[in-house]
């Protein structure tokens, strides 16, 4: 009897654990913030189930307030994220690499330079100084350096 009970508790624990891990995988992949919210809701529910399983295994009534608090926190989290959801561009759905961030920064800086050049009278020495400026902080990341410098030369001159 007791052995069967132990097996049943172990099976339930494994099911809850696998469910939570699958939900965490979705939260990591999740194309949008709302998918992550839904996945993290499932993680919180799995946590509630796990705490309840523990309480029933040990016959402990004093962990019941934890269940109340967990259900409250899950609700507040999902409502907050849904309230502030915004339209995300397709590119924002994944984490950029270091090189892509460097290239984006460079493109934005070049756009600002072009805007400034269009506003003022183009000056050769000032332009050189401004273009040479962003290359200085890039020296500490050698991976993105050659590509960034190459596109800089090709685009600006």
């Amino acid at each position: 009897m007791s052995a069967a009970l132990g097996v049943a508790v172990a099976v339930a624990a494994v099911l809850i654990l696998v469910g939570a891990v699958l939900a965490i995988v979705r939260a990591e992949r999740g194309p949008s913030m709302l998918d992550r919210t839904v996945a993290l809701d499932i993680v919180v529910t799995c946590l509630v189930a796990a705490v309840a399983l523990y309480a029933s295994l040990e016959r402990r009534a004093d962990v019941v307030p934890i269940l109340v608090v967990l259900s409250l926190v899950g609700f507040i989290g999902s409502v907050t994220i849904a309230r502030f959801a915004a339209v995300e561009p397709e590119d924002a759905r994944r984490v950029r690499t270091r090189e892509e961030v460097a290239a984006e920064d460079e493109a934005r800086l070049r756009a600002e330079l072009a805007e400034a050049a269009a506003r003022e009278v183009p000056d050769a020495t000032e332009d050189d100084e401004l273009v040479g400026d962003p290359a200085a902080p890039e020296d500490d990341q050698p991976a993105g350096d050659p590509a960034a410098r190459g596109s800089d030369d090709g685009g600006a001159r």
Partner: peptide, 30 residues
Amino acid sequence: ASIVLMLGGAFLCFAAGVGVLRFRDLLARM
């Protein structure tokens, strides 16, 4: 009866994990 109900709830947690990982769009995942 308690452990049977617990097993049912744990299976639903597992099913939700599979569904949220495999389904295609936001409404299906919800």
